[in-house]
Computed example of a mutant assay.
Amino acid sequence: MVNALKHEDTHILLENADIQWYWDGSQIIRFRELWREGSSIEEIAEELGSNSTSIALLVMDQAEESNIRPRKRGIFGK
């Protein structure tokens, strides 16, 4: 990660976003089930008590780790 001074002409990604960074094992298992069932990120967020931004990041994390597979409609589900 790069430490950068904040300048007027820069943008810090997700600087003010409400992100859930930590997930326990049961949440990950449920996330994977919902993903396989075709739930949208909004539906998954509601089920897990989170928000769609956090779920989108979790999707990227789990895909990067090869824990979930791509879906025909991606984050939109069925």
Rank of each mutant, 00 (worst) to 15 (best):
S52V: 06
I55A: 08
W35F: 07
A56R: 15
E43A: 03
R32L: 02
N51H: 02
S40K: 00
R32Q: 14
S54E: 10
E43H: 04
F31G: 08
I44W: 12
S40E: 09
R36C: 00
E43P: 08
E33G: 02
T53I: 14
E47G: 14
A56W: 12
I44V: 11
I44T: 08
S52I: 04
Q62N: 10
I41E: 05
E37W: 05
I41P: 07
E42Y: 10
A45H: 01
A45F: 02
Q62T: 05
E46Y: 13
L34F: 06
I55H: 02
I41D: 12
L48V: 11
E37N: 04
I41G: 04
L58S: 06
R32S: 07
M60P: 00
N51V: 01
D61S: 06
N51D: 05
S39R: 08
E43M: 01
S50R: 08
T53F: 00
A56E: 13
I41M: 13
E46H: 12
D61L: 14
L34W: 03
I44L: 06
E33I: 01
A45C: 07
F31L: 08
L57I: 10
R36A: 02
E47V: 12
F31E: 05
M60K: 14
I41N: 10
A45Y: 07
G49D: 02
L58K: 14
S39K: 15
E37L: 06
L57T: 09
S52Q: 14
L58G: 03
L34M: 13
I55W: 11
G49A: 05
S52W: 08
G49E: 02
G38I: 00
W35G: 03
D61A: 08
E47D: 15
G38S: 07
E33V: 01
A45S: 10
S39L: 01
W35E: 05
N51C: 04
L57E: 13
E46P: 09
V59E: 01
L48P: 05
V59Y: 11
L48R: 07
I44F: 05
I41T: 11
F31D: 09
R36Y: 00
S50M: 05
S39T: 00
S39F: 14
Q62S: 03
L48F: 04
E43Q: 04
E47L: 13
V59A: 02
E42P: 05
T53Y: 12
E33W: 10
G49S: 09
D61G: 03
L57N: 10
L48Q: 06
F31Q: 09
S52F: 04
A45W: 06
S50A: 12
E43G: 03
R36S: 04
I41K: 06
V59T: 01
T53R: 13
S54Q: 09
E46T: 15
E43C: 00
E33Q: 05
Q62L: 14
W35Y: 04
